[in-house]
Write a protein that binds this DNA or RNA. Structure first.
Length: 494
RNA sequence: GGCCCGUUCGUCUAGCGGCCAAGGACACCGCCCUCUCAAGGCGGAGAUCACGGGUUCGAAUCCCGUACGGGCUACCA
C-alpha cells in the first residue's frame, strides 16, 4: 500500500445520500485505489442544528452498496480515530489556541444582530467587499473578560492577511489565485465550541495525513481561507482537486423533485451497483471519449483526477438505463441469476409461486437481453411462476388464422411435442420449424399461438427456450387447456 | 454589488496550434437480422466549437473583452 496517498470522503450527515455526494466519493475512492493508497471516511457533523437521525448509516450503506470500501472510518475505526468531527472538539480547540497565541486568530463577541447591521450598511453603501469589520480585533484582555463576564460566548475569527494573494494549483482547474484583501476574518470556531467547516477540514486533513483533497467545486471560493489556514498553522498543503457538479435535466441542482436522487432509489429500481458506479464515473470524467463500459476494476485502472472535466454535467437517466442494460448483459448467468434472486427477495413480484434461487437461475438466460433494469424481468416471466394461465382465446388466433385451424395447429404441436425424447430448446426447434412447414403455416403463426397458449403473454422470451424452461408437462398441459378454451369460445356467442 | 468558475451535437463527452469542413456514446430516424419483445449489425440526421476581437503561415485549442449560466459572499456544509 502506498502510505503517501490518502484520500477521504467527508459527508455531513444532513440528509439522504445524494447521487452527487456519491459521485464525489467514487472519484476519491477510484483515485486512492488506483494509486494503491488508503481511502477513509470522516463524518463532518459540526452543525448541530442540521444533524439528521440515521444519516451516517444511510450514507455508509449507500457507499457500501455501490461498491466502495474504506480502510478507516467511523464504523471501522482506524489509527487516527475518532473519524467523527463532533468527537474531535479538543483538537480543534487546541489548534485554535495556537492560532490565537500566534496572533492569527482572535475572539469576537459581536452579536448576530450587529453583524447583520454591518452587512446591511455595507450593502447600502455599495462597498466593494462585504464582511466582518474587525470590530473585536483590537480588544484588550480586560475588555474581553468583561464581555465574558456578561455571559457572551465568543466565536474565534481567523485573521486574513490584508494584502497579497493566495495561490493554488488545482489538479482539475489549474492555477487559482485570489486577493486576500477581499476576504474578511471568517469564523473558525463557533460560540458553541464547534469548528466551522474551514477549520475542521483543514485540521483533520492535516492530522489524518490526507494527500489529495477532492471536493465539490462550490468550495473554490474558500480556497484562500484554507491556504491561509495551512500557512498559519505551519502545515504543508495537500493537493486539491475541485470537482464539477451534477445537474438535473433543467440544469438546476439535482433534487428529489427530479425523481430518483438517492443511491438507494436506483438499487430499488433494479440498477446494478457497478452500472451506477460506471455511469457516475462518466459524469465529469472520461477515459478517452470512446470507452464507456467499465467494470469497477477497469475504472480503478483507468481513472485519474487530471482527466476530470471542469464543467458541470447533466444527469441523463436514459443513458444510465442503457449502461445498466450493458452491465446486465455482460454478467455471467450465475451473477445475473443471483442479482435477480436478490432483487425478488427484497421486492417480491406478484407471482402465484414464490420464486427461489433455482427458478431465478432458470429464467436468467431468457431475460438477459431484454432488461434495462432488474425490474423488467418479472413481467417477462410471469407465466413461469403462474399456476393458472388466463389465456385469451382471441389472442390465440394469429393473423390470417381462424379458431378451427388454430385448434388443429395446437393439437399437432401438442402431439409432436409429446413424442419428444429430449425436451430442450434445440430439439423443440428442430421439431417445430418443419412442423409449421408441413402444416402450411408460418413459423411465426405457430409460435405466436404457442406463445399465448403457454405464457398467456403477447410478449415473452423466445419460445423454444421458454418451453424448455417450462418442461414437457407444463407445456403440454397449457396447450391442452388452450385448445379447450378455443373450443368453448367458439361455442359461445361473442 | 464584489470575487470565483464554466460555455464543443438535445445530453455525456473526445479534442490539449496543423491529422477537425470536429470523433465516440445515449436518445431519435431508417435498414438488416428475427417466433413476439429485445439484443445485435449497418446507416442517417444532429455542433457556423456562446459571441466579438486579437496572436499565428495556421485556433475548437493561446490572449483579451462581452454575453449567458453557476457558485461563494452565514457562528451551513
Amino acid at each position: 500500500m502506498n502510505a503517501q496517498i490518502r484520500l477521504r470522503f467527508a459527508p455531513s450527515p444532513t440528509g439522504n445520500p445524494h447521487i452527487g455526494n456519491v459521485r464525489t466519493a467514487i472519484f476519491a475512492w477510484l483515485f486512492a485505489r488506483k494509486r494503491g493508497g488508503s481511502f477513509l471516511i470522516r463524518v463532518e457533523d459540526t452543525d448541530q442544528s442540521r444533524r439528521t437521525e440515521g444519516a451516517v448509516e444511510a450514507m455508509l450503506d449507500s457507499l457500501r452498496w455501490v461498491g466502495i470500501d474504506w480502510d478507516e472510518g467511523p464504523d471501522v475505526g482506524g489509527p487516527l480515530a475518532p473519524y467523527t468531527q463532533s468527537e474531535r472538539l479538543d483538537l480543534y480547540r487546541s489548534e485554535t489556541r495556537r492560532l490565537i497565541d500566534s496572533g492569527r486568530a482572535y475572539p469576537c463577541f459581536c452579536s448576530p444582530e450587529r453583524l447583520a447591521d454591518v452587512r446591511r450598511a455595507q450593502q447600502m453603501r455599495g462597498d466593494e467587499t462585504i464582511g466582518y469589520d474587525r470590530h473585536c480585533l483590537d480588544m484588550t484582555r480586560a475588555q474581553q473578560d468583561a464581555c465574558r463576564a456578561r455571559g457572551v460566548q465568543p466565536v474565534v475569527r481567523f485573521r486574513m492577511p490584508d494584502e497579497g494573494v493566495s495561490v493554488m494549483e488545482d489538479i482539475v482547474f489549474g492555477h487559482l489565485e485570489f486577493e486576500n484583501r477581499l476576504y474578511d476574518d471568517f469564523v473558525a470556531l463557533k460560540s458553541d465550541g464547534f469548528p466551522t467547516y474551514h477549520l475542521a477540514s483543514v485540521v483533520d486533513d492535516h492530522h489524518m495525513g490526507i494527500s489529495h483533497v477532492t471536493r465539490a467545486k462550490e468550495w473554490m471560493p474558500s480556497v484562500p481561507r484554507h491556504v491561509q489556514l495551512y500557512a498559519a498553522l505551519g502545515w504543508d498543503m495537500p493537493a486539491f482537486a475541485h470537482l464539477p457538479v451534477i445537474l438535473a435535466p433543467d440544469r438546476s441542482k439535482l433534487s428529489k423533485r427530479h425523481g430518483a436522487a438517492s443511491v438507494m432509489d436506483y438499487r430499488d429500481m433494479g440498477v446494478l451497483p457497478e452500472a451506477l458506479m460506471n455511469y457516475l464515473s462518466l459524469l465529469g470524467w472520461s477515459l478517452d471519449g470512446k470507452t464507456e463500459i467499465l467494470t469497477p476494476e477497469e475504472l480503478i485502472a483507468a481513472f485519474d483526477l487530471d482527466r476530470v472535466s471542469r464543467s458541470d454535467a447533466v444527469f441523463d437517466f436514459d443513458k444510465l438505463m442503457w449502461l445498466n442494460g450493458q452491465h446486465l448483459r455482460r454478467s455471467s448467468d450465475t451473477r445475473l441469476a443471483r442479482a435477480i434472486d436478490k432483487f425478488w427477495k427484497d421486492a417480491p413480484p406478484q407471482f402465484d409461486v414464490t420464486p427461489d434461487a433455482r427458478a431465478a437461475a432458470r429464467i436468467a438466460p431468457l431475460v438477459r437481453n431484454r432488461l434495462k433494469t432488474l425490474q423488467d424481468a418479472a413481467p417477462l416471466v410471469k407465466f413461469f411462476f403462474s399456476e393458472d394461465l388466463h389465456v385469451d382465446a382471441e389472442q390465440l388466433v394469429q393473423r390470417g388464422m381462424d379458431a378451427e385451424r388454430t385448434t388443429a395447429l395446437l393439437q399437432s404441436a401438442h402431439d409432436a411435442l409429446a413424442q419428444l425424447d429430449t425436451f430442450d430448446a434445440e430439439s423443440i426447434e428442430s421439431l417445430l420449424r418443419p412442423l409449421a412447414a408441413d402444416l402450411g403455416v408460418k413459423v411465426g403463426q405457430l409460435l405466436g399461438s404457442l406463445r399465448v397458449a403457454t405464457t398467456a403473454q403477447k410478449v415473452s422470451p423466445p419460445m423454444f427456450e421458454s418451453l424448455e424452461a417450462l418442461g414437457p408437462e407444463r407445456t403440454l398441459e397449457s396447450i391442452r387447456k388452450a385448445i379447450a378454451k378455443l373450443s368453448s369460445a367458439a361455442g359461445s356467442p361473442k
